[in-house]
Amino acid sequence: MTETGSVYLDHAATTPMLPVAIEALTARLADVGNPSSLHASGRHARRIVEESRETIAQALDCRPGEVVFTSGGTEADNLALKGIYWSRRRADSRRTRILATAVEHHAVLDPLHWLAEHEGAEVELLPVDERGRLDEAAYRAAVERDPDSVALVSVMWANNEVGTMQPVSEVTAIAGPHGIPVHTDAVQAVGAVPVDFAASGVEAMTLTGHKLGGPYGVGALVVRREVDVTPLGHGGGQERDIRSGTLDTPGIAAFAAAVEAAVKEQPDHAERLRTLRDDLVRRVLAVVPDAHLHGPQLDVAGTERLPGNAHLGFPGCEGDSLLMLLDARGIECSTGSACSAGVPQPSHVLLAMGCDEEQARHSLRFSFGHTSTPADVDAVVAAIGPVVERARAAKRA
């Protein structure tokens, strides 16, 4: 429950800052010193940045020099996709193809669309099954059709809407023998499930602070030193000359504290969220028998879907109506659809999973986080029956 008294179940969008991150942030806000300056204050700021880099590297099993700080996940995705594509194509003009799943976040899909429109990229969106999981046979066939023409592959670690975990290790195993770099958007995964950069085999990985208990406006692209990345912007040459700009020392300190805590507490955190999530799904389906779960079924091992994700469809309803009716009762969640200029659009994720347009509009995503409690589940269960009835009546009217 939030300070306003609302039941907050939209942690996949952003989760409250962890106390250790707040402490790390506030402890540095009054400090002066540009990390690029050579005097004592600058060196002090630089030490904080580099210690934070080491903390993140240790948590994710990568080298400190592989952590490139950014303003968040969207910038990191853009940097990976555009930067690696430009470098790979400059080295070999045949490398024009980019492979990605059809269920990627718009922070990946939109840069790919831009590269196709403006930079001659041939973007191939790979199919997924009814659970939202990559069709590995289709992916393998796409790679092997002409591996020398593939600039890079981007497959998210876990889906932000339906919580599906993707087979990242299998993706890298297929791309690796051909020397094709793989990027993964792990924004939803870090702190929710085990994430090991070195073991995964990916060349680049995106994460951001506000999804795991850190502050807004700071994230990172973890990218192997041997991967050539053309910068998006130019300036002071910070961050390996990949991402220029004065570093946010307080934000980076808080980000590192959040990553360290989230990764350390991940096993217990996941088990607690899984218990809350499973209870919500079971009880909501009892109240609304024709509701259904999108994505993988609830799995005890936690290898198929994110532990805090419950994406439910309610036939005969509009997701936006359900959202607003729940919001009026003090329950905050999200729909599975994106809105553009106030016009609701069917979820591209659900469409890719085989849903029709109506099915892709009638869903709600409940996502749990470190502040979630059993009382939050009770509130949703108490409200969902009357809310669904009102939403269905409104649609029939």
Rank of each mutant, 00 (worst) to 15 (best):
A258Y: 07
V202P: 02
G295Q: 08
L99F: 09
P296D: 11
S340C: 11
E358F: 07
A375R: 10
P181C: 10
K264N: 09
G120Y: 11
E144R: 13
D279R: 15
E271R: 15
E104G: 09
A360V: 07
H183Q: 13
Y85C: 04
H39R: 13
P16R: 00
W114R: 13
H234L: 15
E75L: 13
S200M: 07
D376L: 01
A301R: 14
Y216F: 15
A57D: 01
G65K: 05
A258N: 04
A286P: 10
A352G: 04
D228I: 08
V195Y: 04
L112W: 01
Q188F: 09
R243T: 03
G236D: 14
A27D: 13
V223T: 09
V162T: 12
F197R: 01
V67E: 02
V68Q: 02
R240F: 05
R94K: 14
L276P: 14
T55N: 13
V108S: 12
A199D: 12
V202K: 00
Q345C: 06
P307T: 03
V123D: 02
L306D: 02
G237Y: 00
A382K: 07
I331A: 09
P315D: 07
A30E: 15
D146P: 01
T371I: 14
A102C: 13
R329H: 10
I48Y: 06
A151K: 03
A391V: 03
G251T: 09
A286C: 09
